[in-house]
Amino acid sequence: MNNTKNTDLELISENKMFGGLQRVYSHVSTVCNGSMRFAIYLPPAALEGKKVPVLTYLSGLTCTEDNVTVKAGAQRISSELGMIFVAPDTSPRGQDIDGEDDSYDFGSAAGFYLDATQEPWGKSYNMYSYITQELQDVITSNFDSADMKRQGITGHSMGGHGALTIHLKNPTLFKSCSAFAPICAPMNCPWGEKAFTGYLGSNKDSWKEYDATELIKTSPSKATLFIDQGLSDNFLKEQLKPELLEIVCEQVGQALKLRFQEGYDHSYFFMASFIEDHIRHHFDAL
């Protein structure tokens, strides 16, 4: 993989919000083989030059950086606490790969926050390296107020899977972790099986590297994992399986705060209801 750094940004949009600035940027990504976009909210404290913690949010299937930016209401509490809120896109775009846009749960908008090993996906579908390396360089190089020693990670659904696995593999980089309705055991659900087979191949031993339930068995975190799950979520039983994660956490002594929310579904209405709790969780931890 070519690790040449290119940290130049193009500003796509800027809007003032709660005294801070909500921006969207694009940049040339080496690991994702093309242009990538991310949203970033800079609270007033950051605009004043103060060093503030950074929370990265990973979105779910079919999403871009836009969904959480517009629907979740994260900016108000980020402004109040003084926290940068970063929301990258969910996959590379426009790679001209056969099948890339055939389904909602594989290819475009379905990068699953892993590094693909199977061709033709391996040349661009490297969201794990993008989040943990390249985007780190971009933020560091362009935002002096970002305290990169105080970072947390969160996400929804596929992005919740990404947050859990990336934290467990990089606990000193992302020191705090939370998730909304995460795919907790992707090796044991249709979404994960499809994605892992396509991106990683048929050797299931390689899948364990990107399955939170498997990672906790060997590399539990010192942080408390904070998860919210709606009980009226249509995907709960077939795809998300938080009970499997809960069992493993109990076995190895992993601190887990798992909340089941009566009547809530898989939508951003659920997310917006509890986003403040999650941002405060990260702020307190950082």
Rank of each mutant, 00 (worst) to 15 (best):
M1Q: 03
N3S: 11
T4W: 03
N6W: 00
D8L: 07
L11E: 10
I12D: 02
E14S: 12
K16P: 04
M17S: 14
M17Q: 10
S29Q: 03
N33T: 02
G34S: 03
M36P: 02
I40P: 04
L42M: 09
P43A: 06
A45P: 00
A46P: 05
G49Y: 02
G49E: 03
K51V: 00
V52N: 03
L55S: 02
L58A: 10
L58M: 12
G60V: 07
G60D: 09
C63G: 10
A74P: 00
A74M: 07
R76A: 15
L81H: 03
M83D: 12
I84C: 05
F85S: 07
F85V: 03
P88S: 08
D89N: 13
S91C: 06
S91P: 04
P92N: 07
I97M: 13
E100D: 14
D101K: 12
D102L: 12
S103V: 15
F106D: 05
A109R: 08
A110N: 05
F112H: 04
F112L: 02
Y113E: 11
D115Q: 03
A116D: 03
T117K: 01
P120A: 07
M127E: 14
M127W: 09
S129A: 14
Y130K: 06
I131A: 09
L135M: 09
V138Y: 13
I139L: 12
S141L: 02
N142T: 01
D144M: 12
A146V: 06
A146H: 02
D147R: 03
D147V: 04
M148N: 07
K149V: 01
R150D: 08
G152C: 07
I153H: 00
S157I: 06
M158D: 12
M158Y: 12
G159T: 04
H161W: 01
G162E: 11
A163N: 08
L164G: 02
T165H: 01
T165I: 15
H167S: 10
L168Y: 02
T172C: 06
S176Y: 01
S176I: 10
C177I: 15
C177N: 04
S178L: 13
F180P: 10
A181I: 11
P182S: 13
A185I: 04
M187Y: 05
P190N: 13
W191P: 05
E193N: 13
F196Y: 15
T197V: 00
L200A: 14
N203S: 07
K204F: 00
D205P: 03
D205Q: 05
S206F: 09
W207Q: 12
E209G: 00
I216W: 00
T218P: 00
S219D: 13
P220D: 06
S221I: 11
S221G: 14
K222D: 15
T224R: 09
L236Y: 09
K237S: 13
Q239A: 11
P242Y: 07
E243S: 15
E243R: 01
L245N: 11
L245T: 12
I247K: 15
R259V: 14
F260G: 09
Q261K: 15
E262L: 12
E262G: 04
Y264N: 14
D265Q: 12
S267Q: 03
F269R: 12
M271R: 00
S273F: 05
F274M: 13
F274Y: 15
I275V: 15
F283Q: 00
F283Y: 14
A285L: 07
L286N: 11
L286D: 11
